[in-house]
Design a protein around this nucleic acid. Structure first.
Length: 282
DNA sequence: AACTGTCCCTGCAAGC
DNA sequence: TGCTTGCAGGGACAGT
């Protein structure tokens, strides 16, 4: 499932393959993908427009357009962005197609493919982000983009009631962490998911902060995680390899790779399947 | 205001 | 074998 590292990998692909190119034609299949506005709004907002940047905040992909508007794409659970040659066979659930041109490179197509249809594509006015895109406007700190330190983490956790895992998953607090990386981060930090965030000592916060940065950076370097069921791939169709380095996610009932003594427990925390070591996480 | 639970949706795997 | 059922999960939304 695309979380920060997968979205960052896709962003880098967009920078390579899409930035600087002009969209000459847009096709919208399933309207649910453009539900925030409409089929017509997306086609009008993108046709004849040049993409001038590709950035990311949390799990949100953002492209500035030379029209002054901004494109937002969110992969949610099962979304994929694929760059393809014109006329290539499209996979099932290809909901949006952008036809791209520029002077130097041959024409190509950017496909938004999304079986579970939770993902979305929208063009919005950056001046109206608060009303048109409240979820994006209220996003929390991005650990790889914004200033981020143990002290900032302490301030974010102050007076919070939920458990540690719920806070890591809360996009209004820290942006970009999903279920896989929350479990991996907590394991590296040697913290149980049900710890109370407001009670963490400064030493523990230093450890947690380091674990967040370490796990996310390592995962970006590995091109993200590709699981059996979701088939995440980058823009060129390549799988990630960080799944080979997962130490707890999906390992319920197995022995701990870190301490060799504990068993990986599988429970539900914050409404999500949660895996952690019975021995080395406290 | 901030938290929790439910829903959306499809593909896959497990179980009968 | 072929069906049914359950599970995966990000974020919106309703309810507490």
């Amino acid at each position: 499932m695309p979380e920060l590292p997968e979205v960052e990998t896709v962003r880098r692909g967009l920078e390579q393959c899409v930035v600087g190119r002009k969209i000459v034609k847009v096709e919208v299949g399933r309207e649910r993908t453009v539900r925030r506005t409409s089929r017509e709004a997306l086609i009008d907002g993108l046709t004849g427009v040049k993409i001038i940047s590709a950035t990311r905040r949390g799990k949100y992909l953002l492209c500035d357009l030379d029209s002054g508007q901004r494109l937002m794409m969110h992969l949610r659970m099962s979304g994929r962005l694929i760059i393809a040659e014109p006329g290539a066979q499209r996979p099932p659930h290809t909901h949006v197609v952008m036809h791209l041109v520029n002077a130097e490179s041959p024409e190509s197509e950017l496909w938004f493919v999304d079986p579970r249809t939770f993902g979305e594509v929208v063009v919005f006015d950056p001046d109206k982000i608060k009303t048109q895109m409240p979820d994006l406007a209220n996003l929390g700190v991005d650990p790889l983009i914004d200033e981020f330190s143990p002290e900032i983490l302490r301030d974010l956790f102050k007076d919070r009631r939920g458990n540690l895992k719920a806070l890591l998953l809360n996009q209004h607090v820290v942006a970009g962490i999903g279920n896989i990386y929350a479990d991996e981060i907590l394991h590296l930090a040697k913290l149980r998911p049900d710890r109370l965030p407001s009670r963490l000592t400064s030493t523990t916060l230093v450890r947690l902060h380091a674990a967040i940065v370490e796990v996310l950076n390592q995962a970006v370097m590995a091109g993200g995680s590709t699981l059996k069921d979701t088939q995440y791939v980058d823009l060129e169709g390549q799988t990630g390899s960080f799944q080979d380095e997962h130490r707890v996610y999906g390992r319920g009932g197995l022995s701990c790779l870190t301490c060799g003594k504990g068993r990986i427990l599988m429970t539900v925390v914050a409404g999500r399947t949660t895996c952690y070591c019975s021995k080395c996480q406290h």
